[in-house]
Design a binder for these strands. Structure first.
Lengths: 125, 125
DNA sequence: TTCAATGTTCAATGATCATTGAATTAGTCG
DNA sequence: CGACTAATTCAATGATCATTGAACATTGAA
């Protein structure tokens, strides 16, 4: 496989970053990564969220938007937040988003969100 | 038309807000609104960005996500950022996004993009 | 070399998106 | 009333999205 490509700093666009983060699955991923601090996670760390091929898809989105860095290491891929770079480009953005992710986004959250959805849908008209 | 509906605070979800802001047209709109400070803008204020019916669409998106408040006033609709409410829910989010919107997003950008397009089209011949 | 573990690719599906323009509603003023 | 302004609705289009599962590729280790 060709080497994994990442956007350079000047190729990271706000709209793309927002678009990449505008999804519960991907919010769950970066929330997990933020908790990992320095230690890096691999794709398999997120299997509680969704399936493997779906993770490939979502991690790819995050990578292309410049949110995440993916490093091959043996048979795995180590994934880390591009925190410093994002902070430099959009100060405060990542922090405010991480702080705003509802607790439980991901696995268990799916059922909860489904319930919420029904309530909201019912209430909002 | 039935009264215009807006989500309540507890109905404003991060993913929806991000999704609403993940678009250059809508970024241009909120950038304009932020400049307006207290004074409110109407839909017509954005006709330099795109067409009327397209504005209805985008303003609707922003409203449903809870980013913007729309108030009928005579034959117009006054549009304002729900700044205080968003700041309370997601401190720092709106500011960091507003600060990160590239200068020229909107109108002028359209011409630039069109120029780019022509170049690309010309180059691929 | 064979195996198991880890991810990727691909095609298909259904959903949602952004854009367009014509027709329409709604409010205001002469 | 009738003309005017502001904005919405609607249908159509093409694009992109998220999800799924089966088949494939890569690596390290037995």
């Amino acid at each position: 496989m060709a080497t994994i490509s990442h956007p350079k700093l000047d190729q990271i666009a706000l709209a793309n970053v927002l678009s990449a983060l505008a999804d519960d699955t991907r919010l769950a991923i970066i929330r997990f990564l933020a908790d990992c601090e320095d230690r890096q996670a691999m794709c398999g760390s997120f299997l509680h969220i969704t399936t493997k091929s779906n993770l490939t898809y979502h991690v790819g989105k995050l990578r292309e938007a410049g949110v995440v860095r993916v490093t091959p290491e043996g048979t795995r891929r180590l994934i880390s937040l591009r925190r410093g770079e994002l902070d430099a480009l959009f100060p405060g953005l990542l922090d405010s988003i991480l702080a705003g992710i509802p607790k439980g986004t991901g696995e268990t959250a799916l059922r909860e969100l489904a319930a919420e959805h029904r309530e909201v849908a019912a209430a909002s008209n």
